[in-house]
Nucleic acid binder design. Structure first.
Length: 269
DNA sequence: AGCGGATGTACAG
DNA sequence: TGTACCTCCGCTT
């Protein structure tokens, strides 16, 4: 389940496994049968990500646009591919590799113009090398909305999800309910730079790790942590557990229908 | 077997 | 603000 780092990793993996090669395409589940038939046998020229959106180019047909949403998953692997199950929306395969897409919010063939329209409604992405945080700051610095809500707004920053939001605010000691316009420029610049570093590491490791070396269980003399989403984090889904730094209780609350996690003692207004 | 959630978004009103 | 949608997994019975 995906934040932006997952999608950038998928783009890189698609390039490696399928780039420049003709691929077979099919939709066992059926909802993308027409699109799959159109790209079947064509060469995947290029794969790229912007925020949580994945784009696969099959010129001259167009782009396959994928958004995993909350439940979507990809399974990529080397041949032999397992028998496709009836929930696979799209399988791409070659003699050597396969990619199965299940449960996406979006999987559609789109034109160049439609792709551009997606880019146009997304904010800067910490994982796109030419993007920077200035456009985001222009909105944040004028907004009465909480910084927690702004970080999840893909028009403000593209690719941040519920885990990176909680963790980056913790790492910078910022109360999630603070208004965007009450952040300082220096605070935002530090947050942006941290997102770039954390999310690049997320692409590399294909998981989210945010705990600094000096706060790991070993360094703090705590028992090793068992973590059900695969990474080391400070506050995400750790409600009612002790904060790794101050020992106070991590809190949770609902904000815009998403669960927010923070340490009221370490994160200040 | 059946439920409630989950790293997300879009649309209705 | 609420609801619908897509799938899987872990918990409860």
């Amino acid at each position: 389940m995906p934040e932006g780092h997952t999608i950038h990793r998928l783009a890189a993996d698609h390039s490696e496994l399928f780039g420049g090669r003709p691929v077979r395409a099919g939709s066992p589940q059926g909802k993308f049968a027409d699109g799959a038939a159109l790209i079947d046998g064509q060469v995947l020229e290029h794969a790229e990500a912007h925020g949580k959106h994945l784009f696969l180019s099959f010129p001259p047909t167009g782009w396959v646009h994928v958004h995993l949403g909350l439940f979507g998953t990809y399974t990529l692997g080397r041949a032999p591919a397992p028998p496709p199950t009836d929930t696979v929306r799209l399988r791409l395969s070659t003699e050597a590799a396969y990619a199965d897409l299940r449960g996406p919010t979006a999987c559609a063939l789109i034109t160049d113009d439609e792709k551009q329209a997606v880019h146009d409604r997304l904010g800067p992405d910490p994982l796109r090398p030419s993007d920077d945080g200035d456009r985001a700051w222009a909105r944040i610095s004028r907004s009465r909305t909480s910084v927690a809500a702004l970080l999840l707004d893909q028009k403000v920053v593209a690719g941040v999800g519920n885990v990176y939001r909680a963790e980056v605010l913790f790492r910078h000691g910022i109360d999630p309910y603070r208004a965007g316009r009450d952040l300082t420029r220096a605070e935002w610049d530090a947050i942006w730079a941290d997102l770039v570093a954390l999310m690049r590491e997320g692409v590399r490791n294909n998981r989210i790790d945010t705990v600094r070396p000096e706060h790991t269980p070993e360094a703090m003399g705590r028992p090793p942590r068992v973590d059900d989403h695969g990474g080391e984090v400070y506050v995400y889904r750790r409600d009612r557990q002790p904060c790794h730094i101050c020992g106070g209780e991590v809190r949770t609350a609902e904000l815009a229908a998403r669960n927010l996690f923070w340490c009221p003692n370490c994160q200040r207004r």
